[in-house]
Each structure stands twice: as structure tokens, then as C-alpha cells.
Amino acid sequence: MILDRIPIDAIGVQERVDRICSRSIKKESKLQALDLALRMMDLTTLEGSDSAGKVRQLCNKAMHPYTELPNIPSVAAVCVYPNRVKLAKEILKDSAINVASVATAFPSGMSSLEIKLDDVRYAVQEGADEIDMVISRGAFLSGDYALVYDEIAQIKEACAHAHLKVILETGELGSLEHVRMASDLAMEAGADFIKTSTGKIQPAATMPVVLVMLQAIRDFHHKTGKTIGMKPAGGIRTSKQAIQYLVMVKEILGEKWLTPDLFRFGASSLANDVLMQWVKEKTGRYQSLNYFSND
């Protein structure tokens, strides 16, 4: 595999992001965007303290985000640790909601390949529909691209029918060039989705990083005809941000990507903000978090 080093004009990227952020999406189109954002959401809980109760609550929220308004769609997936997959799957079995599991020694990825593969197989066995893996950033940064590539390829194999999302952890990659290179690498190695971050490292998803990743997806599509999905995760807390991301996807990849099959938000607090904005659009009243469930 030949990996091109594609130079990125960071200032140009920022200017493009600024232009995208200045689009005004209001009223009907805002409602549409909110609907889409909610349907694209991977409701996530990745805490060491995640109890069965918390996962149960999250799954119920995924199915019925807000019962007081009709026509509120359910989210795309629930994202949990491997040992909570079984429970989540059980609760969600009658719904169309997928269960995604982080695996491969999440969030650092600092373990042996065997353990990572076992981690993936365990999650798939428990019923995960989607696997969110982390790349070995240490290997990537020291130039050992072949190792990173092989890891992704083998994990893809271990996933069997499950979709593979590859987390680049862009906050640790250092530059946009690295982000672009890691995106290309992950897609070549068989990723179904590329994902910005674990949510455990700051900065998590930022607009310039996502823009570069979307361009990588576009170029990969031109080159191979394959459509790869995108998942920004971490740090997206407001509907406004979410809508800006949607605008960016539409402008760079086109309408085809505006579906939960090809674009996801990894978030936990975003759902409540989307719901609050939704109710605001419907009732004209600004909302309070007091009236929305915590998880």
C-alpha cells in the first residue's frame, strides 16, 4: 500500500469551516436537521461506573427520547463497553436500534493484538452490531503504518458481520496531515466508518478535523467507488454544532451521506439539547434541562 502525504492548508480549512458555520438554518429546515441529527445519534455511555441501570435507562431513552411529543424518532445506536453489550442488546431487541461497542483496549489501545482481537470477538459474540476500535496512535506516530494497517485489517476480519468504526483519536495525532493520512490508512484497511475520537482526550471532534476526514472520504469514494461513513464524537454538545456538522457533510460529500447509515454523532449530552431545541421549535418556549431525563 502506498500512502500519500497530502499537504493540508490549515488556514484554508479554518476559513472553509468559518464559512460553513455562518449558514443560517432556521424554522422548518432546523426541525428537519434536528430530526436527522437525532436519527444519526450514537447515544453513548463509556464510564467505568456504568451500571446495568444506567445502560437500561440509556436504551430506553434511545427508543423513546421524549414521549411527550409525537413523531420524535429514535436514535441510531447505543454505544457501550463490551460487558454491557448483552444487556443493551436484550433491551433493544425489538427495536431497529443498533448496539455499538467500543473494543480493542479502548480508549488507549495499549495492548497486544491478541487481546484486542479477543476483545472484538467477545463484543461481537455478545451481540454487538457495530465495533468502535481505536488505532495504535503510538505506532502511527512513529511511522509504523504497516502495523496500524494490519491491525485494522485483522480486526475487520474479527468483526465478521459487525460494522467497523475506526477511531483515529485525532486529538493525539498532532496535525491535519496526520489526520488525513490516518483516515486514508483506515479506509484502505477496511474501515466502514472513520471516527474522530474516543471522547477521553481533549480536543475531541473539531470542525477542521472533521472537514479533513470528510475530504478523505470523498477522495476515497472517487478513487474506489466505496462509500465510507463518518462519525465525529466527543465535544458535540449543542444542536447548533450538530447542524453545522450536517451542513459540512452536505457540502463536502453531498446528500447521499445524510443518512444514519453513513453519518453518526457520538454524543451523550447532545440528545437533550436537540430535544430541547425541538420542543422550543414546536412550542415557542425555551426549555429547561429540568424537564429532560439525565441519561
Binding site: 415557542g284 418556549r285 425555551y286 426549555q287 429547561s288 434541562l289 429540568n290 424537564y291
Partner: peptide
């Protein structure tokens, strides 16, 4: 009006 309708 905007003050009184604000739920927060």
C-alpha cells in the same frame, strides 16, 4: 413575553 415563557 420571552421572560415569562422561558422554562429555565
Amino acid at each position: 413575553g420571552h421572560f415569562v415563557s422561558h422554562m429555565d
